[in-house]
Write a protein that binds this DNA or RNA. Structure first.
Length: 359
DNA sequence: AATCCGGGGAA
DNA sequence: TTCCCAGGATT
């Protein structure tokens, strides 16, 4: 599909820029800390801090950061721990680690000079992607460079009624294309700031102030009365359903065999029932670990929900006919009538509690 | 190209 | 609690 096919025509670029910059001159933000003394270093730090983080939260962190690390050399010379300390509370700490690495890279590879001349060199630095590179270039140098952050995505998707989740490549391509179309060669710093300010203060995610918007008559979403439909949210992934068998091996005194799980991973370090992917594995295990046992019954499966998946658990019972097997390392015979204080996985506890009521 | 990762704030 | 944000890195 070519861009000109079956796509609504964008607005005239000059019309859009004029109206946007006129709005910005009256309502845009021009007194933010990083807008004063616009060095590439200060703009860079601010853009990294502003990733996934709102302006009001960033301001104090930015001031403290600049007081301690006034230039890229001081940042490069610092210990990572101190950088992380100044970042504490901002979240996304990989940003701080990348910032520190990038500072050393700029000092060593570019002699402390940010490669603001080309997007590729800039976005090769850790923590700087396509949009952040564009923002740094536009804000620090005024050169033409499009950006596409969450705010711009929201403004453009509403203005043109661009459906689909922006995380989808085709949707993102279309939005970049629109951003390219509108980005001017003049006043590019103001333009990109204006787009972000629009998204942050006017074209907000909920309850956008459409009556104050310079594009109220142009906006596809507004004309349809469906502003909040855009941008579409990420489709909820139906959590996958996995299956497992849990063996309740019961001795003649009604005790149940538990095994301690590996220290890491699901239910790390907790005690659980022996688990198997299928009944063959389970029978093999019984043959080698509890040869005197007889197979019991397959009970009603139930589903336990995790964050990332659901687990269908099928309980199976088996009985030891001649006393108990020995207790090996990492094993425990659990007496439902005199339960020891063990960390139990939730569904295992439910099974053991149910077993108790059967006695 | 698709998926993963991230932590705090807002609703 | 859930959603999602001034995205980037990884595979």
């Amino acid at each position: 599909m070519t861009p000109s096919d079956s796509m609504p025509a964008p607005l005239d670029a000059e019309y859009f820029r004029t109206r946007l910059l006129d709005w910005f001159d009256h309502h845009g933000r021009s007194q933010l800390p990083w807008q004063q003394e616009r060095t590439p270093y200060r703009v860079w730090v601010s853009e990294i801090m502003l990733q996934q983080t709102q302006v009001a939260t960033v301001i104090d962190y930015f001031q403290r950061f600049m007081a301690r690390f006034p230039d890229v050399e001081s940042l490069a010379a610092a210990e990572l721990d101190e950088v992380l300390h100044l970042w504490t509370g901002l979240g996304y700490y990989a940003r701080a680690r990348n910032l520190h690495r990038a500072a050393r890279c700029v000092v060593e590879a570019y002699g402390g000079h940010f490669p603001v001349e080309n997007v590729e060199a800039l976005s090769a630095l850790p923590g700087i992607g396509r949009s952040t590179a564009g923002a740094i270039i536009a804000q620090a140098t005024g050169q033409r460079a499009p950006i596409l952050d969450g705010n711009v995505k929201r403004v453009l998707s509403r203005l043109h009624g661009v459906g689909g989740w922006p995380g989808r490549p085709a949707v993102e391509r279309r939005l970049w294309q629109l951003a390219e179309h509108y980005t001017p060669h003049w006043r590019c710093a103001d333009f990109t700031q204006a787009m972000m300010d629009m998204g942050a203060t006017l074209c907000t995610r909920r309850r956008p102030a459409c009556l104050l918007c310079p594009f109220v008559d142009d906006c596809v979403a507004h004309r349809a009365g469906e502003e909040t439909r855009y941008p579409e949210s990420k489709p909820k992934k139906t959590t996958p359903l996995r299956h497992t068998l849990m063996l309740m091996l019961i001795d003649e005194e009604g005790r149940v065999l538990l095994e301690q799980r590996p220290a890491s991973g699901l239910w790390g370090g907790l005690w659980g029932l022996p688990q198997f992917d299928d009944e063959t594995q389970l029978r093999d295990w019984l043959d080698s670990h509890a040869p005197g046992s007889r197979f019991g019954e397959r009970r009603q499966p139930f589903v336990h929900a995790f964050t990332h998946f659901r687990l269908e658990i099928t309980p199976l019972t088996a009985h030891l006919s001649r006393g108990s097997a020995g207790v090996a390392e990492g094993q425990h015979w659990y007496d439902p009538l005199q339960p020891a204080s063990l960390g139990l996985a939730a569904p295992v506890k439910a099974l053991l509690d149910a077993q108790t009521t059967l006695l």
